[in-house]
Nucleic acid binder design. Sequence first.
DNA 1: GCTTGACCTGGAGCGCGCTCCAGGTAGAAA
DNA 2: TTTCTACCTGGAGCGCGCTCCAGGTCAAGC
Lengths: 119, 119
Amino acid sequence: MTGYAPSEAARRSGFSLDTLRYYEKIGLLSGVGRTPAGRRVFTDDDLGWLTLFRCLRDTGMPIAEMCRYAELARAGDHTTGERRALLVRHAQRVEEQMCLLQRQYDHLREKIRFYDTLG
Amino acid sequence: MTGYAPSEAARRSGFSLDTLRYYEKIGLLSGVGRTPAGRRVFTDDDLGWLTLFRCLRDTGMPIAEMCRYAELARAGDHTTGERRALLVRHAQRVEEQMCLLQRQYDHLREKIRFYDTLG
DNA sequence: GCTTGACCTGGAGCGCGCTCCAGGTAGAAA
DNA sequence: TTTCTACCTGGAGCGCGCTCCAGGTCAAGC
């Protein structure tokens, strides 16, 4: 149960210090420990959450939905089904997003090929 | 050289009427024709531009960069090299984005598989 | 002639996700 | 002992990309 300073947690998660504080403020990240002087101490568990948030953000999940997920997790083991369903729905949206991205990427490549034929 | 009403251009491009007006206001789309009464008339050429903008937006290009591209195109044929370079740079960013998306999608799938093992 | 509806304008407002700031504290380094 | 750095708080501000609104115009259908 190593503890990490805010700057270290930021470095490892890829979120800024301000974003870490923001996530805690809105209740996305909760139960972050403190030193007697009031400074945050992040655990490996917190970093695990941050890794998940990184994944969800990178795949375009809105923060409100991540909050919902975190809330379910806090509510206990009886919410695993709902949590899984939430992730599955999100994964489906990501698949669609990947298809669209691929299509438009192909379109873009074609446009570039057009410029290639000009000279 | 068929002409399209704003609502038809919106339907075909997938942009809202407000967005079409906005794109013209900021100079992204220029030279859109008008009826004597001042109503917009979109040509096939305009729709071609909108299709390109759709592609670039869907792949995450900021509007400022699309403006730059449109500006180059308006400047004439001597800018084709620069235009191509702009698209190539963008395509590279899109490739990176696709890789990241795939990685995080895999991560997400793994998380879902974890929930599957629970019951 | 009257209503309806699609369109026009300039400009304000919004939702998201941070990001920055002022003013302050604790602890370590010189 | 002074200074420096990393951190703290509450709250304001920002950049992006639209989106909405009020108030008006025109053309077509009844």
